[in-house]
Design a protein around this nucleic acid. Structure first.
Lengths: 331, 331
DNA sequence: TAATCCATCGAAATCGTTTGCGGTACCATT
DNA sequence: AATGGTACCGCAAACGATTTCGATGGATTA
C-alpha cells in the first residue's frame, strides 16, 4: 500500500505547512481556494488517505461499533448483524463482531477488547448465564454507548431493544386458543433465560385467562436435539393436538420428531412457533409463526445507538411488535 | 471508561520516567525487579490498558483482520465467519466484518476501508460480478496479506482456499449414477460465478464419461425462488427421476417445488445437493448431500493467513475435500 | 588510583493528525 | 501616517506508546 502518503509528504511537495494541508483537505475557511485546489489535486494524485490511528489517537473516538453475540451462526443474530452492518456503513462506521460462545468469561474479554479499541459504541446480546450487572453498569457509567438487544440484563437505566416477548407469546397462545386446541405441548428454551421466562409466563397467563380448561404441558429444551427428544417421549405415552415452539431451534427439533413419529401436520398435530421467519417457510406445510425479526430489531438497535450518540441522555426500552404470519400448520 | 490511565499518568505517580514504565510493563531486562513490581502493581490498580491507537500508529499494524463477504445472512458464510472468529481470538486478533451485498463497488469500498484501518490481513469472498483483478493485484503487490475464499478471482499467485468444487460435483454425479438415475435435472447457480461453472463442468464430464446415456438437463437459478420455478415449469411437461442442487439456496427452492407438486422423495424423485449441512437435516427424509463446510473452510483460511503472516512467501491454493453424507433422499 | 563495566534509568525523537494561537501582508478607513 | 480589519497561513503542542541513544553511579578490575 502507499502508506507513505501523509500530510507531511504533501506539504513538502507543495512547500506549505502541514496544518495548511490538513485544513485545505477539510475545507477550512482560512484556506484560499487556490491552495485548496492544489492540495486536493495532489492528495488525489498521491492517493492520500488519513491514517486512522493518528486520527483516533488525536480525537479519541473511532468509527467502529462493537457487536457481541453468543454466536454468529444463528438465523436470528445473523439477520440482526446484517441490519446493523447496513446502517453502520451508511453512517460511515464499521463493525467489529465478537462471539461470546455464550460464555460469560469470553463475554467480558470481548467487552474489554471493545474498550481497548475505543469503539464508538457496543451492541450486546448477553450470554445466558451472564449476570455481570456490575460490569455492564461500569461501562454505562463510564459513558460507553451501550445498546442491549434480545437477551438483556435486568438493569433499568440502559438502552434495550427487544422483541416483544410477552406479546409474541400472547399472540401465540391466543391463536392456539382460536383454533380450539385442547391439549397443548409448549416447548420453551432454557428457563434461566429471561426470554424463556417471559414468554412462558405470558403464554401461561393467556391460557389461564382465556381458555383455562386447556390441558397445557410446558417443557424446556436447551437444544433442538432436546426438543426432539421431548416430543418423542411425550408422544410415546400421550398425544397432543398442538405443539408450540418458542424458537427456531426448538422448531427444528420438533419438526424432526414429527417426521420420525409420522405425524401429519396439521391433521394429527398443529404447530405454531415464534420465529425469525426463515425456517417456517422451509417446511411443508409452511409453519404458522409469530415473527420476531432479527433484521427489524437490528434497525431499531441502530436507531437507539444513533440517538444515544447524538446526545440523547435518557435511556429507553424499545419493543419490536410481533406479527402473526399464517402458514398452513394450523387448522 | 478510565481512559485517563496512561503511561505518563503512572510515571508521574511513581516519579519515574515514561520510558521506564513502558519497559517495566514489558519486562525489559534493563529494569530492576523492584521497579517492575511497583509499576505493575500500580498498573493493575489503575486498570491501565495500552492505547491501541497509539500503539498502532507507532507500529503501523493492527490486530484486526478484515473479512468481506457478499452477505452475512448465509449459512455458508456464517459458519465460515464463526470459524475464523474463533481462531482469530486465539491469536489475539479480532474481526472487522463487511458485507459487499454482492456489489463490486461496495466491495472496493470495503477493501479501501480495510486498507485505511491498516488491518493485518483480509479474508475475501469476491462478489459475483467483480472482476477487479487489477485491484486485487494492487493490494497483493503492496504486501497486504490476502486470502481469497470460496468465490475467488482468476489470479494465479495468490492465497486461495476453496471447497473442492470439481470434486464435490464429481462425487455428486457419481452418486447419482450409482443409483442408476436416468433422467436428471441439475440446477446450478449463476453461470458467471466460477463456482457454478466449475461444478457444472465437472458434473457434466462425469456423466459423459461414466453414464453417457443419462438424460441430463442443466438449468441455472439465481435465487431459491427461481429454482422453485424451474422445477415447477419442468415438471409441468416432463418428469425427472432425480434433481441435483448445486447449493443450499437452490435446495430450498427445489424442496418447496416438490411440496407444491406433491412429489414424494425419494420414490417420485430423488434429491442430492451440495450443502453446508444445515438444511439437509431439516427435511424429511433427510437430504443426501455432499458437504462443503464453511466452518472447515474458515479454519483452513486462517491457517493460510497465519502462514502468510509468518513470512511464508509462496502462495498456495488449498482445497477442502468433499464428503458424501448419506441421508434418505436417494434410492 | 584509574580505567572499565554493569545495572538502571531518562531524554527525546517518532508515528500522523488536529487545532489553538499567533503572525504576516495587504487593503480600506480615519 | 496611524489604525483597524481581513484573508491566509505556519508554529508548536498535543494525543500515548515505543525505542534509540545516552547518562549516571557504584562496583570491579588492572
Amino acid at each position: 500500500m502507499n502508506y507513505r502518503s501523509t500530510l507531511k509528504n504533501i506539504s513538502e511537495k507543495l512547500n506549505i505547512s502541514i496544518s495548511t494541508v490538513s485544513r485545505a483537505l477539510k475545507n477550512h475557511p482560512d484556506i484560499s481556494e487556490s491552495t485548496k485546489r492544489k492540495v486536493k489535486d495532489l492528495a488525489v494524485l498521491m492517493e492520500y488517505e488519513p491514517n486512522t490511528y493518528a486520527v483516533n489517537l488525536r480525537t479519541n473516538v473511532s468509527k467502529v461499533f462493537g457487536l457481541i453475540v453468543p454466536a454468529i451462526s444463528n438465523l436470528f443474530y445473523e439477520s440482526f448483524i446484517a441490519a446493523v452492518e447496513e446502517d453502520a456503513r451508511q453512517l460511515g462506521y464499521s463493525l467489529m463482531i465478537l462471539q461470546s460462545g455464550n460464555d460469560p468469561v469470553t463475554e467480558i474479554e470481548n467487552l474489554k477488547l471493545c474498550k481497548q479499541t475505543r469503539v464508538a459504541g457496543i451492541f450486546i446480546c448477553v450470554a445466558t448465564h451472564a449476570a455481570h450487572t456490575e460490569t455492564y453498569l461500569k461501562y454505562i457509567e463510564a459513558g460507553m454507548p451501550l445498546v442491549f438487544f434480545d437477551n438483556v440484563p435486568d438493569i433499568d437505566s440502559c438502552n434495550k431493544v427487544c422483541p416483544a416477548d410477552e406479546e409474541a407469546a400472547t399472540i401465540s397462545a391466543a391463536t392456539i386458543i382460536k383454533y380450539k386446541k385442547k391439549k397443548v405441548l409448549g416447548i420453551f428454551g432454557n428457563p434461566e433465560l429471561s426470554i424463556s421466562r417471559k414468554r412462558m409466563e405470558a403464554f401461561r397467563k393467556t391460557f389461564a385467562a382465556d381458555a383455562p380448561k386447556t390441558q397445557l404441558e410446558i417443557q424446556h429444551a436447551d437444544s433442538s436435539q432436546q426438543a426432539k427428544e421431548i416430543v418423542q417421549t411425550y408422544f410415546s405415552s400421550k398425544k397432543a393436538d398442538h405443539i408450540f415452539c418458542m424458537s427456531d431451534e426448538i422448531l427444528m427439533g420438533v419438526m424432526q420428531a414429527t417426521y420420525k413419529l409420522g405425524l401429519t401436520i396439521p391433521t394429527d398435530v398443529s404447530i405454531l412457533a415464534i420465529s425469525n421467519g426463515f425456517l417456517p417457510a422451509l417446511f411443508n406445510p409452511a409453519i404458522t409463526y409469530v415473527e420476531t425479526s432479527g433484521y427489524k430489531l437490528g434497525k431499531l438497535a441502530m436507531r437507539s445507538m444513533s440517538d444515544h450518540l447524538n446526545g440523547q441522555t435518557f435511556t429507553k426500552v424499545i419493543i419490536l411488535p410481533s406479527l402473526l404470519i399464517e402458514g398452513a400448520s394450523m387448522q
